[in-house]
């Protein structure tokens, strides 16, 4: 009992800040989503904004778009990140300059990453210029749409560029701490390298991979900058749609925005639950 008291005492500053700011910040959004917004004379709580948003023509495409880019980018980041980590380990360059270089995208903010992707993949970007120089396309119009496209490839590219090194760092640390003899003895026993990876290493990596996947998924689902800057006009990612409704000149539109904010928060909280579940697994594994 005394240790519980001590624990809570130690946690007080952090919980106070997070509790007050996070919940205090979310509560008005929740109220406004139910049409309670006295500042513009809306005082009757109603579910009609939820009905209207859910029934609107852009909500579902937006939600699906956000889920899609989040899924593809985080799955890609985990797969390629694992590959990069294995390469760093195999070549023994993980602790050398290559390892440090590979981690650079982790510290570059998303806004800059957007600029990088634009410079490379836009219709007059470096890739298009290279394709032109080698005769594959004859004009910018011949270039397939990689940014501002409805599939969100540009947005995914931003998240991949940031996510792959992040996943690689996580996986690299786990692999390095892993008993390498496990892997070696598996190969000695006649397993192919792939089999050894598949049946020996992968199961041990799985908790870290899952938690990294959920973390990246959650981040790219809720983040606003990348889809705002290089997302398609339709469908807009859910956070972008929410933001656009927020800055609508008519303030009575704000509840529509807040409905989307509440949906984003709800999904994010589900992911938080999943994340802490996987983290617990990770701790048991280590």
């Amino acid at each position: 009992m005394k240790s519980a008291l001590r624990a809570y005492l130690l946690l007080t500053p952090a919980l106070l800040v997070l509790g007050a700011l996070f919940l205090g910040g979310f509560a008005p959004s929740l109220l406004q989503s139910f049409g309670y917004f006295p500042a513009v004379g809306m005082t009757e709580p109603t579910l009609s904004f939820y009905r209207e948003v859910f029934g609107g023509r852009e909500f579902l495409p937006s939600l699906l778009f956000s889920l899609r880019i989040a899924f593809l980018s985080s799955a890609g980041a985990v797969v390629f990140g694992t590959l990069l980590a294995l390469l760093l380990l195999r070549t023994g360059r993980g602790e050398k300059i290559e390892g440090a270089l590979a981690a650079i995208p982790v510290i570059v903010p998303h806004t800059v990453a957007v600029l990088l992707v634009l410079n490379l993949l836009a219709r007059t970007g470096l890739l298009a210029r290279l394709l032109f120089a080698s005769g594959f396309i004859s004009s910018p119009d011949g270039m397939p749409s990689l940014v501002f496209d409805r599939g969100g490839l540009g947005v995914i590219a931003v998240y991949l560029w940031k996510g792959i090194p992040f996943a690689a760092v996580v996986v690299y640390v786990v692999l390095r701490n892993m008993n390498t003899r496990l892997w070696e003895s598996a190969t000695v026993l006649g397993a192919s390298r792939f089999q050894a990876f598949r049946y020996v290493v992968l199961p041990l990596l799985l908790p870290s991979l899952s938690s990294t996947f959920v973390l990246l998924f959650g981040f790219s689902f809720g983040a606003f900058e990348a889809p705002f800057l290089i997302g398609p006009t339709f469908p807009r990612a859910l956070p972008v749609a929410a933001y656009s409704a927020y800055i609508h000149p008519d303030p009575t539109f704000r509840p529509y925005s807040m409905v989307m904010v509440v949906v984003i928060t709800f999904i994010a909280m589900l992911l938080v639950y999943l994340y802490s579940f996987f983290l617990a697994g990770e701790e048991r594994a280590s």
Binding site: S145, F148, R150, P232, T233, F234
Partner: peptide
């Protein structure tokens, strides 16, 4: 149109 009207400049 540009990008066949799939997307428009922001």
């Amino acid at each position: 149109l540009w990008m066949r009207g799939e997307s428009y400049p922001a």
